[in-house]
Design a protein around this nucleic acid. Structure first.
Lengths: 198, 198
DNA sequence: AAGAAAAGCGGACCACGGTCCGTTTGGCTC
DNA sequence: GAGCCAAACGGACCGTGGTCCGCTTTTCTT
């Protein structure tokens, strides 16, 4: 049994070396600190590398790009939020009727998106990361629409419902058209009502 | 009548010097050429300046930024398109019933957005430019919704309807979810039906 | 424990967007 | 036409994201 590889498990994750893992944590921490004591724009790759006490190349090897670093940062709160949906208390989590869950979902997504707007924008379309997030929300909305007995192309309807919750649209509505959070919530509720049917 | 300013007309546009105007045209032409014989990403500010035979500083003085240059490029086809809506033949232009116009609007917007996706992405949120475009489409959809007798926050509904026609969402649907143009058109029609009411 | 291969590391280097400031030029007035 | 000045010009310069490659460290094997 000597030649047996313990972790790699077929051809999946080749496992990370200890120094690499240590640096990954140090870099994420450094980036988070830099955000905390300034804006996201101040998070420059050189600054992160210097603060973490590593070379610049290391940052890129760990996170591919600046967008990748931002996406990794985002990933933490995003997973927590997904957890609240999959197994948290109602009406966000399971247990409430689908209609209520859909309304709660929109309100929550609205808030979390506005809260992390800068980070999300800086993360851009970082590889499969962004798609994973989009895909989770789309799948959930699709599921709720199904529960509600909606007919039609549920995949398209889910995407269409989610589109007004994306950063550019929300920023436009808040900053250019001066809509309040309350108005956005009402708008979502109205939109949901129209889409699922009277 | 000697001291009278002919063009400035109050405090509006201070008029452009002849060499400035010449350079603006040369730069736009150079940029268009560079796009034509390569992708949008190859349009670098140095390259545009060199091809137009001017200094780099001139490019930035005329267009503020790379995004500004892209927005200026986009502005041409965008105005033509707006013209087709305001005074072109039905069902896109006036003359057709509002419902048909709304469907035609979505289909047309879909195509033009996908066609110029790269340019639109490169233009980003270039100052008031982007908002002007967004604002035109929003106003038009809002107007059509009004004609259709829809009740509620028409401004919000217009934005929500338009959101799935924005570049990031369309690219996601086309490239990640492999939806055809036909499916997108059908999706738009269905969405419109649900929003304006059965 | 020793040795070797692979994974990681670091920082010099490059390209591009954007700024600055000394110089030139177009378009006035006289 | 001469002269003036605001506007426009050009290109050296800077910061940042991203790459590359020779050196170091970890980890696995025997």
């Amino acid at each position: 049994m000597e030649g047996m590889r313990l972790l790699p498990m077929a051809g999946e994750a080749p496992a990370e070396r200890s120094d690499a893992a240590r640096n990954r944590e140090a870099l994420l921490a450094a980036a988070a600190e830099l955000i905390a004591l300034g804006c996201v724009e101040h998070v420059t790759m050189d600054a992160v590398a210097q603060r973490a006490g590593v070379g610049k190349g290391t940052v890129f090897r760990r996170f591919e790009s600046r967008e990748g670093l931002m996406a990794a940062l985002l990933d933490r709160s995003e997973s927590a939020w997904q957890g609240r949906i999959l197994s948290g208390p109602p009406p966000l989590g399971p247990g409430a009727p689908p209609r209520e869950r859909l309304h709660a979902f929109g309100h929550s997504r609205l808030e979390v998106t506005l809260l992390h707007a800068d980070l999300i924008r800086a993360a851009g379309h970082a590889g499969a990361r962004a798609y994973a997030a989009v895909s989770f929300t789309a799948m959930h909305v699709r599921y709720l629409l199904g529960e509600l007995g909606v007919h039609g192309d549920l995949g398209y309807l889910a995407t269409a419902l989610l589109a007004p919750l994306e950063v550019p649209i929300l920023e436009q509505q808040v900053h250019l058209e001066h809509r309040s959070l309350e108005q956005l919530r009402t708008g979502w509720d109205d939109l949901v009502s129209r889409v699922v049917g009277c």
